[in-house]
Write a protein that binds this DNA or RNA. Structure first.
Lengths: 343, 343
DNA sequence: TTGTAGGCGTTATCAA
DNA sequence: TTGATAACGCCTACAA
């Protein structure tokens, strides 16, 4: 029934040597003769020996496993970041556990506890929309040895490294691009302002307007969620205004898509009558017959950098230093048809 | 420096009881007095005790962790399946480790070994395009206790449960739908024929033609990959033929997208001149201005069912039975503009 | 160069 | 009802 794995003890018996010798041979320990080493290694191969990671982890305190908590795994952005983390860490022998918070702070806390419980070596988090209990995370930092790293959706907490993109800059460039294309009355569809990323996109929009001497109009900043539906509805009510916009910079691609659909519905032309630009560079934006301009967040790169920050922190740890890094990646403006009015 | 976790040993010392007592109290063991149990539980709470999963796993042989191997994690299909697996298993205390094979059999084998090595309780795999070494997997099955479960991209191996969708049926319905819309000369862009899913889509296409007394023409079955580019090129060369097709059933949505782009380029109309239908129900298919018909694979459901098959197998295992399940989910045809010629 | 033995934190068996 | 102790499989001082 139960198929037992061979252990170093089994090998030691077979070879009439001690388990210590076997362990040393298998770990390339310097203090062992070449001859016995080969003997052991061959026997291990023959007996199909597989090191028991559990025992090793129990002894060493390192599980060679990291955890990632994201709102949902099946979105282009988060799955791409996870891909980056996996590809950066996998070659170094780390496994990646994924958890979903369903964009809920309570579930997020539970997942965090589970990962702590699993004794992962590091936890990567992109926080949920309604996360506000920073004390809890601070407590984790101060009472455990498990480093936490924030990516994209972060909060500023001492001791926590963060990897983000420059949302302000991305939004600034997007808005500036619209201005240069000759759009004058640019509205911004902002996302959930509890998240820094959306705050920054909003501030980038405002900065660009100011720098180009355009008025910042309160009513032109419309608080939407990130769905197609909300884009449609917001555009609908916007078009009932006396003074109509000639461009929309949306903090979300899905909302931008909704905008495009409604514009078409209103029998207006993109980009001639109205310019549109989104954020995230979702795959569909480039597939559309009328492709949608967007801001690429380089998610795979973000994942790789996040993984690398962890790897570097291990090195640093040997010298007893803990460094808090704040890395900011540069977004990439993708100009497509929906915002290219000039030839 | 090192923040040590409290262990049951710490609690036992504090309370002047044995570790065995502490362990029993914490595990709701029947043979313990209510009084001491409360004493221990409260002290554990006070000392912020967290059970060490590693030690428990080492003792019990169960890690409460499963592994998933997919070609790439950042695709809609695979990330959705993983979401389903996570959501089914997480409530039962399981963690999910994700691995990418990069659609390569060698890497896949390495990842499989890593997971075995990590002593996960189950491994879910959607095999890579060029996986052919079935002996290796059979060996894993026969020499370890770790169950393997295939989803979507499978091979038939005794002892391995599989969860797939009925690709034949999905393809059949898609083709039949085209026929009913009045298309007569339907071409099929098939995927990699090393994978069963694509074989089945091809056979579904053929069956539908036969059942409706349409000729199965060898030249109408075009072996493409799954990229936009290949869709464009295939369509291009197809249009140089004397006898031109009036519909394309593509085994991939991306190829279908390429087809649509090329059709537009050729100044032809969809669906009037040519009907198009893809497979997978990628998000973009419904977002397009001219939405693309497709076959939904219900990936989240596939993940949940996969997870459930594992959970059930644990129950069965208590009775010493190992059941090999072959579950087939029903695909959902999504009819959209690209194939709706009739009103 | 090799062996002995203790410990990582739990659970389970056997006594008491 | 409780306690002592032996595993689980590995690594690593310390001895030899």
């Amino acid at each position: 029934m139960a198929k037992k794995n061979t252990t170093i003890y089994d090998i030691s018996k077979k070879l009439n040597v001690s388990v210590a010798t076997v362990s040393r041979a298998l770990n390339n320990h310097p203090r062992i003769s070449q001859a016995t080493k080969e003997l052991v290694v061959n026997m291990a191969m023959e007996m199909d020996y597989k090191q028991n990671n559990l025992a090793k982890a129990l002894k060493s305190g390192e599980t060679k496993t990291v955890g990632v908590i994201v709102p949902y795994i099946n979105t282009n952005f988060f799955s791409s970041v996870i891909r980056g983390i996996e590809e950066e860490l996998s070659p170094h022998g780390y496994r990646v556990i994924i958890c979903q918070s369903h964009d809920d702070a309570d579930i997020e806390k539970k997942q965090l506890n589970t990962l702590l419980h699993t004794q992962v070596d590091c936890i990567f988090i992109s926080i949920s929309k309604n996360t506000s209990d920073l004390e809890y995370i601070k407590k984790v930092i101060s009472t455990t040895n498990t480093p936490i790293i924030f990516f994209d959706r972060k909060k500023d907490i001492p001791g926590i490294s963060t990897i983000t993109i420059d949302d302000h800059k991305g939004a600034y460039q997007a808005t500036e691009h619209l201005i240069k294309e000759g759009y004058k009355n640019i509205c911004h569809f902002s996302g959930d302002q509890n998240l820094e990323i959306y705050q920054n996109r909003l501030s980038g929009y405002i900065s660009a307007l100011k720098d180009h001497n355009l008025p910042v109009i309160e009513d032109n900043i419309i608080n939407t969620g990130s769905s197609i539906e909300e884009g449609i509805n917001a555009m609908k009510s916007l078009w009932k205004r006396k003074v109509k916009p000639d461009a929309i910079f949306s903090a979300s691609d899905f909302t931008a898509l909704g905008v495009c659909k409604e514009i078409k519905n209103l029998k207006l032309r993109i980009p001639e009558d109205i310019g549109v630009i989104g954020f995230s560079n979702e795959p569909f934006t480039q597939f559309m017959e009328l492709s949608i301009s967007s801001v690429d967040q380089t998610p795979v790169m973000m994942g790789k950098v996040s993984g690398n920050v962890f790897l570097e922190s291990i090195k640093d740890n040997f010298s007893g230093i803990t460094i808090e890094k704040k890395l900011v990646l540069t977004p990439m403006l993708q100009i497509r048809q929906s915002s290219s009015r000039k030839k």
